[in-house]
Computed example of a mutant assay.
Amino acid sequence: MSVKADEFTDTIEIYKKSQVVAPFFTSAYGYAVFPTIGKGGFVVGGAFGKGHVYQGGKVTGEASLIKVSVGFQAGGQAFSEMIFFEDKRAYEEFISGEFEFDAAASAVAITAGVQAKAGSEGASASATAGPATGKQAKADYYKGMVVFTHAKGGLMYEASVGGQKFSFKSKE
């Protein structure tokens, strides 16, 4: 995998600084970390990222994220993403091989001043000054998972359809 281990540590530390995200690190069964997801498009768009899946504080495998979307969109953006698994059932569902968020799944943006939802339902926002400033949206599990995003740069408007699809490869 081409993503460096310290990129994962750095990304996790960013999320731990968020008052909204921090409690999930102690209560979740496990989580997935994607340090950098690049997305872009003009009418047809896509996103791709590689990440690690953790359970009990240890890496259990690697995950890949892809998203293809069709609809009004223009621009490009880079962001990181964390997915927390509420329990063993949610974790097992994610690592089962091919997992896809349905259209109702969304993510909470932890960047400053942003209270909008972002993610697989297509809405997104990015304005960044760090996760520890500004009022942040409340987050809760949806079907055993909760997703957070942090904008790293770029600008993109998107009103599209399409879900994020994940594949998992065990470390063993």
Rank of each mutant, 00 (worst) to 15 (best):
K39M: 12
S69N: 13
V44E: 06
R89W: 10
Y31N: 02
V53L: 09
F84N: 00
F48Y: 14
G51E: 04
F79S: 03
I66H: 11
K39F: 09
M82R: 02
A28E: 03
V53R: 05
T60V: 13
S69D: 11
F84K: 02
F72R: 10
F48D: 11
V53Y: 05
G30T: 06
Q55V: 12
G51L: 02
G49W: 00
V53P: 02
A32Q: 00
G56W: 08
E13N: 10
M82V: 00
S69H: 07
F72E: 13
V44I: 13
F48E: 12
S80W: 04
G57A: 08
A78W: 11
G49I: 01
V68H: 03
G51F: 00
G40R: 00
V59L: 08
A90T: 04
V33K: 01
G56K: 13
K67F: 06
G75S: 07
S69E: 11
F24D: 00
F72Y: 14
K39E: 07
E13W: 01
G76M: 10
G46Y: 06
Q19A: 13
V59G: 06
Y54T: 06
Q19Y: 09
T60P: 02
Q19N: 14
Y54K: 00
A90Y: 02
K17N: 10
E62H: 13
F48R: 12
L65K: 01
Y31P: 05
Q55K: 15
F79Y: 11
G71K: 05
E81L: 11
F24W: 04
A63S: 06
Y15R: 00
Y15A: 03
V33E: 03
Y31A: 00
V33L: 09
V43Y: 05
K50C: 11
V53E: 06
V21P: 01
Y54R: 05
E13M: 06
K88S: 14
Q19V: 11
S27R: 10
F25T: 03
K58S: 12
I37D: 00
R89Q: 15
G76R: 09
I66F: 12
S80N: 08
G38V: 12
F34E: 02
P23I: 03
K88R: 14
A28F: 00
E62W: 07
V20Q: 12
T36C: 10
G49L: 02
A32G: 04
K17S: 07
T26M: 10
F72W: 14
G40K: 04
V33D: 02
K39H: 09
F79W: 07
Y31D: 03
F84S: 01
P35F: 08
I14A: 10
E86M: 14
V59M: 10
A22C: 10
A47Y: 01
K16P: 02
K16Y: 01
G71A: 07
G30F: 05
I83D: 00
G46H: 09
G71W: 04
Y54C: 05
I66K: 13
F25D: 04
E62M: 13
K58G: 09
E62V: 12
A74C: 14
G46T: 05
A90L: 05
R89N: 15
A32C: 10
F72H: 10
S27P: 00
E62I: 14
H52M: 15
T26P: 07
E62N: 14
S69M: 13
Q77D: 09
R89D: 15
I66P: 08
H52I: 12
P35A: 11
V70Q: 11
T26Y: 09
Y29C: 12
A78H: 14
T60D: 04
V68C: 06
V59D: 07
F72Q: 15
A74T: 12
K67N: 15
G38K: 11
